[in-house]
Design a binder for these strands. Structure first.
Lengths: 146, 146
DNA sequence: TACGATTATATCGTACACGATACAAATGTA
DNA sequence: TACATTTGTATCGTGTACGATATAATCGTA
């Protein structure tokens, strides 16, 4: 590859990665609107539905986000009454994030989302095997860059 | 897959896509800092180095960004004197984005970036063939979601 | 047990990112 | 040629995203 080719938009792997991420996020918009949450807020709830009552630091690790991103996001989820923020008793530095009843109930309304997204990709030419390989490469990238 | 498994963070393809995109973007940070530009600004310049003197609308299409994102970004690049914004003579609605001399010169300082990023992934277990497949799947996703 | 180092969050400033809305220039058509 | 429609950008409000910095609680150790 020449230097000129190296600098082509499409040849920088980061670019399609960046575009694909934003476009797929956009696909969630209409579905999440019904739950009155954004995509990153959805990811936080996914993490909590899986493991509830976690300190902020644990969530930053799982989501690969900085506390400077997560703290205000969590406050918005608190305002929506989906989560609670409580100082840990054993460690006053820690803030524990827990689902409210409302937040737990939301899970039932969210179960259909993965299916609907899968459905949107049904007509694409991406089969299960390809997806598995794609997923594995993503994991490698995350491992390497994280 | 059970509904509970469907709602696991890792099983939603969107999530690793979102993380991988942010983490790779972070890798560019230190390299781009030397050019005094951000990652999205770098992508705009890549597009211009490839095809100069384009209307804003053309850039939004190539980068899959809204004008509400691009307009302020372009103004910042203008402030840094890397690009110029001129109303088209043939169509007064259009704003043509062109590289300044300084912006063209920046290309020389940027040619090493793709190499350096590739270098950072050298020790990873991702080979050329895997990368090609990964790239093709990304394209399919973009085509389908775009 | 003082006290410097570390840890867990929070705050601030800057820069995206996008939907909704606005508006002027251009276009199509009666 | 009036004028409704479309097109190309811009503006505004909300919500990420992150580095730098701040601060209180905890820990390590002399």
């Amino acid at each position: 590859m020449t230097t000129d080719e190296m600098l082509r938009l499409e040849n920088q792997l980061c670019f399609p990665l960046y575009v694909a991420s934003r476009l797929t996020t956009r696909m969630y918009g209409p579905l999440l609107e019904e739950l009155d949450i954004t995509y990153p807020q959805y990811l936080v709830l996914l993490a909590l539905w899986q493991t509830d009552n976690q300190p902020v630091g644990e969530l930053t690790k799982r989501l690969y986000l900085e506390t400077s991103t997560l703290t205000p996001l969590l406050k918005r989820l608190e305002q929506k009454q989906y989560i609670s923020r409580k100082r840990s008793v054993t460690d006053e530095r820690s803030v524990l994030i827990a689902l409210t009843e409302s937040g737990q109930a939301l899970k039932e309304k969210a179960v259909c989302i993965p299916e609907k997204i899968t459905e949107l990709f049904r007509s694409s030419t991406i089969d299960m095997q390809e997806l598995t390989g794609f997923y594995q490469t993503l994991q490698k990238i995350i491992q390497h860059a994280g």
